[in-house]
């Protein structure tokens, strides 16, 4: 197994600030906006962006929810592993909101399809956008593209993109791992 550094801590921080700026530009005062982090790995990214928006750009009314898509996945009973759910926190209503779905890596697009169906159970948002830190382009199984993207990566099927966060992994970095 070999690994290659794709983004260092400094690269990652520059990208996070840029993504926060793009969100600010697109959403103004965030009145009607709801950030939705996908469990488990998208939530950390959403929290980082929320922190930057609050601390650096003085936006104080950004709402953040956590969405678990386990029950909506299309690979239930198709693999060997049992899919165990994570906590879901969607107490803020989605009706007529401008939703930003946030996930760390966009790969086949199947998780995002599941998330779109899951969001539907809570009501009818005005709009849903997609923000991902890494876009593994040319790997899509479905016609899904990000609205905001940190970095595009070309990776082949037996490579994995691993996003590390200081909070869980003791460093901020993104690696390309050859399995």
């Amino acid at each position: 197994m070999s690994q290659k550094l794709l983004l260092s801590a400094e690269d990652l921080h520059i990208i996070l600030f840029r993504l926060a700026c793009q969100l600010k530009e697109s959403h103004g005062n965030f009145d009607q906006t709801l950030l939705v982090g996908l469990q488990p790995r998208g939530v950390r990214l959403a929290e980082r962006l929320l922190h930057i928006l609050t601390q650096e750009y003085n936006v104080h009314n950004v709402q953040l929810s956590k969405l678990d898509i386990t029950f909506f996945r299309d690979d239930f009973r198709r693999g060997d592993k049992v899919l165990n759910p994570n906590a879901n926190n969607m107490e803020v209503g989605v009706e007529n909101k401008r939703i930003v779905l946030i996930d760390d890596v966009l790969y086949t697009g199947r998780s995002i399809r599941a998330a779109l169906t899951a969001i539907d159970s809570y009501g009818r948002p005005a709009e849903i956008q997609l923000l991902t830190l890494i876009d593994r382009r040319f790997s899509r199984h479905l016609p899904i593209q990000p609205d905001f993207c940190g970095r595009q990566v070309d990776a082949i099927q037996n490579e994995q993109v691993v996003v590390c966060w200081n909070e869980e992994d003791n460093e901020d970095a993104v690696y390309l791992v050859n399995k």
């Binding site: 029950f71 909506f72 239930f76 879901n88 159970s121 809570y122």
Partner: peptide, 13 residues
Amino acid sequence: EVINRPIKKVPSL
């Protein structure tokens, strides 16, 4: 939590 959502159904089974 699922059965307290506005739409109380998931497609798992």
